[in-house]
Nucleic acid binder design. Structure first.
Lengths: 191, 191
DNA sequence: GAATTAAGTCAACATGACTGACATAAATGA
DNA sequence: TCATTTATGTCAGTCATGTTGACTTAATTC
C-alpha cells in the first residue's frame, strides 16, 4: 500500500504559517484568481474529452462514466452513497444505472445487514471498461503532476481538497481510500 | 500589472530534474492517480455550484456563465474565439449568446478591420453579473491556494496548464493575459 | 403495528449539447 | 470582375442528462 494518505493527514496549517509578515502573498488580485478559474475550466474540459470519445462507441455518456468510476473504485457502495457523491437526483441516477446494469457492467446485491440497501459492484467487463476510460486520464494526471514539479503531489492534493465544500471534505477523505468495502476487500467480483 | 505570467514563462523542466535517481517519485500507482481524478471531479462539482445557484435567479444556466466570463475577461473577442475556447458548436453558442444579447448583458460590434467579424463586449450590467458570478469562485480559489501552502500558486498553475491538451496550451497562454483586446485596453465599454 | 427509510418508477419538463442544411455578407484570389 | 472562401447566423430535429412531483414496494425501526 502506498503512502497515499499522508498528505491528507498532514494538511498545511495556513493559520500558523500566516503571520502578518506574509500579507502580500495571500492578497491575490481578482485578475490573477480569474486566471486559475479559466485554467480549471480548460483543464476539466480536456480531462473529460478522451473518455467521452470512448464512451460514444458504447452508447454511453459522461454520466455513465461517473457511475462506473465510483462503483469500480468504491465497490459495494450503496445507491445513497452514489447520489451523495454525484449530487444528482435519484431519477437521474436511475436512468444511467439501469443501462449499466442492463448491459452487464454493474450488478446489484441486497445488503447483508440492511436488506433494503442495494450494494453496487462492477462486473468483469465493468471493471475493464472503467480501466479503459481511466487510462488516458491517468496518463494525463501523471504527466501533469510531473510537469508541475517537485512537491506537486502534496500541493495539488491540498489545493483540490480545499476547493471542495468544507462540509463535503470529511466524506471525500473517507471515500478517498480505495474501496471502503462494506462487504469485502475492494476486489469483490460478482456474477 | 502583476507578475502573473512568471510561472508561465518558467515552466518546471521535468526532463532535467528527472534523473535516474528519482524513479520512485514519478512512478505513481493507478490508485493514487485515480484519487486525483476523483478530487478533480469533486472540486469542479463544487466550484460550479455557487454561480449555478445565482444563475437560476436570472433564468440563465452554466453555459451563459461561461460565455459571459470569456466575453468579460477577453472583451472584444470574436465569436470564433469563443467557439474555440468552449469547444461547442456554433448552434449551441448561438442560443445562449442571443439570450445574453437580448437581455442586454453583451453587445456585438462589427470588427473594424474585418467587418464580417462580430466582436463581443460586455455591457455594464454584463460586467456586473460576471463579477457577481465570479465572486464566490474567487474566494474559493484564494482560500484553496492558501490552504495548499507556499508555492502553491506556481505549482497549481503548472499542473492545470499541463492538464490541458498540448495543442491548446499556446492558445491558452495567450488568452491567459487579461483581455487580448483587439480593439481596446480591455476596459472597453459599449452602449 | 405504525412510521420511517432505501430504493425504484412514471410522467413531464428544461438545459445544453449534437447533426445537417442553408442564408447572408464581407473578404480574398484568380 | 466574378468565383470562392470565410465569419456568422439560423431553422429544424435529436439526444443526454439534469430537474420536480407523485407514488410504490420492501425492509427496518420505534
Amino acid at each position: 500500500m502506498t503512502d497515499i494518505n499522508d498528505p491528507l493527514s498532514e494538511p498545511f496549517d495556513a493559520k500558523r504559517a500566516d503571520g502578518a509578515a506574509s500579507n502580500k502573498l495571500e492578497r491575490r488580485s481578482d485578475a490573477e484568481l480569474l486566471a486559475y478559474a479559466e485554467l480549471l475550466f480548460f483543464a476539466y474540459r480536456d480531462f473529460t474529452r478522451d473518455p467521452d470519445a470512448i464512451l460514444k462507441g458504447f452508447g454511453f455518456g459522461r454520466a455513465h462514466h461517473r457511475v462506473l468510476h465510483f462503483v469500480t473504485r468504491h465497490s459495494g457502495l450503496r445507491v445513497a452513497d452514489l447520489l451523495d457523491a454525484l449530487k444528482i437526483t435519484k431519477q437521474s441516477l436511475g436512468r444511467v444505472l439501469k443501462q449499466l446494469v442492463d448491459k452487464g457492467y454493474i450488478v446489484q446485491r441486497a445488503g447483508s445487514i440492511d436488506r433494503r440497501e442495494r450494494l453496487l459492484y462492477p462486473t468483469a467487463s465493468g471493471r475493464a471498461l472503467a480501466k479503459r476510460l481511466a487510462a488516458p486520464q491517468l496518463v494525463r494526471l501523471a504527466e501533469a503532476l510531473k510537469a508541475a514539479g517537485p512537491g506537486a503531489d502534496v500541493i495539488v492534493r491540498r489545493f483540490l481538497q480545499a476547493m471542495i465544500n468544507a462540509e463535503e471534505r470529511p466524506k471525500v477523505s473517507s471515500i478517498m481510500s480505495p474501496s471502503p468495502a462494506p462487504d469485502g476487500d475492494g476486489k469483490a467480483e460478482v456474477s
